Computed example of a mutant assay.
Amino acid sequence: MNNEPLVSIIVPCYKVEQYLPNCIESILCQSYTNWELILVDDGSPDNCGNICDDYAAKDNRIKVVHKKNGGLSSARNAGMKVITGEYVTFLDSDDFLHKDALRILVNHANKYDAQIVQCDFVRGSETVFPNWNNQEKVDVYDNHTVFTKFAAKIIVWGKLYKRELLDDITMPEGIINEDDWTTWKIYYKAKTIVVTNRPLYYYTVNPNSIMSTAKRKPDITYYGAYDERISFFHEKKEKDLEDVSRLQFCKSLLLSYSNIQLTKEQRNEIDSRFKTHWQALRTSSVVPPILKILFFGFTISPELVSKVANRIR
């Protein structure tokens, strides 16, 4: 009998037949073996469904959910309905994991009694995880310092979650920036968050992915996510977390301003929203001096500052 905690891995699958086998193989090759893999075929029109079924037939740790296409959040929500693990992690089907990813994440969770363990990631177009010879650095945060020390990453993948953190979480469907609405709520529910600088997740640069497609035109759905987040912390009287949320919203607005496909109305809205939140932040201690200079410059010359900031980024 395996005494190690069961890890549920949720993988939404849609139009990724060329990447999916490598993604699944990275799970089959894990040095940590007590896992269940939930492959959610989100009505994919290619061969993804068959690939999922073929792998499930070979390994009883793999479960397949076939559903009508509903988008990334819909697929993740469907996966969360069938998980049985003590821990949960999300993996996109064009990405893959380091062979020791699950073991390292679970070990950190056990050692620090953490509800979230967050790793770093590699970005590229390889199919084999690159060697990493640096010294691992591990930091421990609570549900305040993870925000105020800017350790929180809004993306939902690249983390191991204690399952109960997700019990009342439903990812919003029908929008692109679903992580903006979700991840901060999970962080805030956790008592202990461990962050390792070791890259254990490989993010594949896929020109056909949702995010790559989204970058071709402006998307402003995330405005509502920040409105909700700022209002939540304001009502909780969490002034430091409210200010951090405003700061991150200002950064997003600043960076998005250089998008050449923005309409005049969209630029005006960015300008208006930025000034509102920057006014509330001007004297806040959570804003680093360099960002105060950058934000002030944006109020004077938004187009120039946005272009420079994006190049530095």
Rank of each mutant, 00 (worst) to 15 (best):
V128P: 00
D120A: 07
A101K: 00
L97E: 02
N110T: 09
T84I: 07
R103H: 00
V138T: 14
R123T: 11
T89S: 09
R123K: 11
Q118T: 00
Y112F: 09
H108Y: 13
L97P: 04
N133E: 13
P130I: 15
C119G: 05
I116G: 01
S125A: 10
L97G: 00
C119E: 06
T127G: 08
I116C: 03
N133G: 13
H108K: 10
S125I: 15
G124K: 03
L102R: 05
N134M: 13
G124S: 02
E86L: 02
E136Y: 05
G124L: 05
F96K: 14
L102Y: 03
Y87E: 06
Q135K: 08
Q135V: 11
L91I: 07
P130H: 10
R123N: 08
F90T: 03
D94I: 06
T84S: 07
Q115K: 12
E126Y: 03
D100Q: 09
E86Q: 08
A114K: 04
L91Q: 04
G85K: 07
K111E: 08
K137L: 10
W132Q: 14
D94N: 11
F90Q: 04
I116T: 15
D94K: 13
Y112S: 02
V106F: 01
D120L: 01
D92I: 11
T89M: 06
Y112K: 06
I116S: 05
V88W: 13
T89C: 13
R103V: 01
W132T: 13
K137Q: 09
K111Q: 12
Y112C: 07
T84V: 09
W132L: 10
R123L: 10
V138I: 15
V106G: 08
L91R: 05
D100H: 02
A101S: 02
L105T: 06
W132P: 13
K111N: 10
A109Q: 00
R103Q: 04
D120V: 00
F96T: 14
W132K: 12
F90E: 06
D120F: 09
V138L: 12
D100V: 01
E126L: 04
L105Q: 04
K111H: 15
D139E: 15
